[in-house]
Design a protein around this nucleic acid. Structure first.
Lengths: 342, 342
DNA sequence: CTGAAAGCGCTTACAG
DNA sequence: CTGAAAGCGCTTACAG
């Protein structure tokens, strides 16, 4: 491809002049500007990105480090990020860590931290202006030391200490909203199938708190026997449901902390000649595609992935521009999707 | 971050020597090599990617242009590409075109071609070593003129004339396999719900041919009354099914060209008190996540997305290295997933 | 308004 | 085995 130097000689001006035109400087006569612009058009000249940024110290590129692109949440988040980035004239360079497919979902392992660190190093060597970390679920991000030198924001996860901006869903509020809805539909005895019983999992603990708040507000009892964990999988949901029925049958509604486990509950119910949505109300969380294909379609909470992604990019660009942001702890509410299962 | 020059002076050698060490040249004494390596370790020095590639004319970066990251197929394809790229020491820079969300799925429009071209230009300005185009479905890619100068491969779509390598599923063979399976299960009168009746859509025409071949091989009649199109959507599948029943009831099985339309068929069947999988066999195509959550779970064809992605990257790197490839027309077979709907 | 020159951080012959 | 120097393709003061 043609180079600045060649272009300049073709135009009969210096490279400095062409460069000034390219960069919209106002110190060029209209006449030469037009001539040069026309020749640029004709030749299809495009400035060499590497050379330009080597000199200008600004790449207009942000690094996207992704836990796992196979996570159901990743495409929506990425789309949101990319949308905003593109609108602002930024590019994205992407790296995927394969948390699930390679590291068996152990974000706290040393191997994984090393992978993240290697990825960050790579991004820094590319001189990205900032980094967005796109998590597969709300785990605690502990990898980033302060020394990186470029702004980092975390999408869809959190960080103890809130040193970095994190943009995530409001698990507490969302669970509260769902529980209110369940109660309003007449359910007083609500069983819960959570994911993993762990303080490290914010999805879990926050949703539990939101649930309890709603129950208490309606003076309803939170029965610890009605709480099982299904490990976030369909299979796990099935087994948790089985355990639930062994402990008690004194409930009318099962609130699952994700849609996959709700599907497992459907499986169990059908297998035992109970009808989800009729004999037992079932609610999910995530609004995955499959939730609308269950029979009956599942009432669930929609996660605003695109919005979280967009917001993350927004915050990052603000930081890159040296602007202040209000808080590092940004939460976006989910939306209740009413279908036929409650 | 520390620079080569600083590093060299810290080590008391010239920058050329450090550079040689960095690039694994053998013309450095073991002694100084070790000393320098240690200091590199200590300082955490990383070469500036821009400077390096500006000089070396090789970026080890490939551009990924994506029709729409929201397409169900995109994450799998991207994952496959990234896997192979990473293993070979390549990076990916990504750009998404939003065929669905912005351009309303009109890949043949001028606006869309322009967007693609702008994207390619951008990639060229970044000096990527090659480009992979990741399509959302098998449309005809006509955008790329020969002049780009870097190798391009197309994943999940085709190109009339086969000037560029395309890696896609074998629609003909896959449809043939499914039809054989249906026949083997005892079905002689099979209805088809296709997507869009268009020669431009290879998925459609190839699958139809595969179907017909299998039918003919078993001396079964292909009844044109038993063919409807559902526009690839759930809603469309529902309506196509409705039309089907208006025309005839003389069939025992409905083969839908994607899972979404099969779900629409389920909807119609349930609404009319017929049981999918019992009264009528239903088969899908894609093996989307939701297909396993239908009641009963759907028999379908699994698309080897990861493999298509990997193969695309493989072919691209071969081209980048100037190696020959056997053919530009690469097809990967799908796998039959037997569930309960047939 | 225009251009000569320095320099961004590297790699690569080449000389010693 | 080691280093001085040219140059990749740009931008940015600065002089005129």
């Amino acid at each position: 491809m043609i180079t600045l130097k060649e272009l300049a000689s073709k135009c009969g001006v210096s490279i400095a002049t062409v460069s000034n035109i390219l960069n919209g400087k106002s110190n060029v006569s209209k006449q030469t500007k037009e001539r040069v612009l026309k020749i640029i058009e004709e030749t299809g000249y495009r400035p060499n990105f590497m050379a330009r940024t080597l000199r200008a110290h600004k790449t207009n590129t942000v690094g996207l480090i992704i836990d796992d692109i196979g996570a159901f949440s990743s495409p929506g988040l990425i789309e949101g990020v990319l949308n905003h980035l593109e609108a602002q004239g930024y590019k994205a360079i992407i790296e995927t860590l394969r948390l699930y497919s390679k590291w068996n979902n152990s974000p706290d392992s040393t191997e994984y931290s090393n992978a993240v660190r290697a990825s960050v190093d790579e991004m820094l060597s590319i001189k990205v202006d900032g980094i967005i970390f796109i998590a597969a679920h709300a785990h605690d991000i502990e990898y980033f030391n302060e020394y990186t030198g470029v702004p980092i924001v975390i999408a869809y996860a959190y960080q103890t200490g809130n040193k970095l901006p994190t943009i995530k869903i409001d698990d507490f509020e969302s669970s509260y909203i769902m529980t209110k809805h369940l109660i309003q539909k007449g359910h007083k005895k609500i069983a819960i199938i959570g994911g993993v019983n762990s303080d490290k999992d914010k999805h879990e603990s926050d949703r539990l708190e939101g649930f309890e708040k709603a129950m208490k507000e309606s003076s309803l009892e939170v029965n610890k026997n009605l709480l099982e964990n299904g490990g976030w999988s369909r299979e796990g949901g099935y087994k948790a449901c089985e355990r639930l029925f062994k402990n008690s049958t004194d409930f009318t509604c099962i609130f699952c902390f994700n849609d996959l486990m709700a599907a497992g509950v459907y499986d169990y119910l059908y297998e035992n000649n109970k009808r989800p949505g009729k004999d037992y109300a079932v609610a999910g969380f995530d609004n995955r595609e499959m939730s609308d294909f269950l029979t009956p379609p599942l009432t669930t909470m929609e996660i605003p992935l695109e919005e979280i992604g967009r917001k993350s990019a927004e915050v990052l660009l603000k930081k890159i521009d040296g602007k202040e942001i209000d808080t590092n702890d940004i939460k976006i509410p989910c939306r209740l999707i009413e279908r036929k299962s409650v």
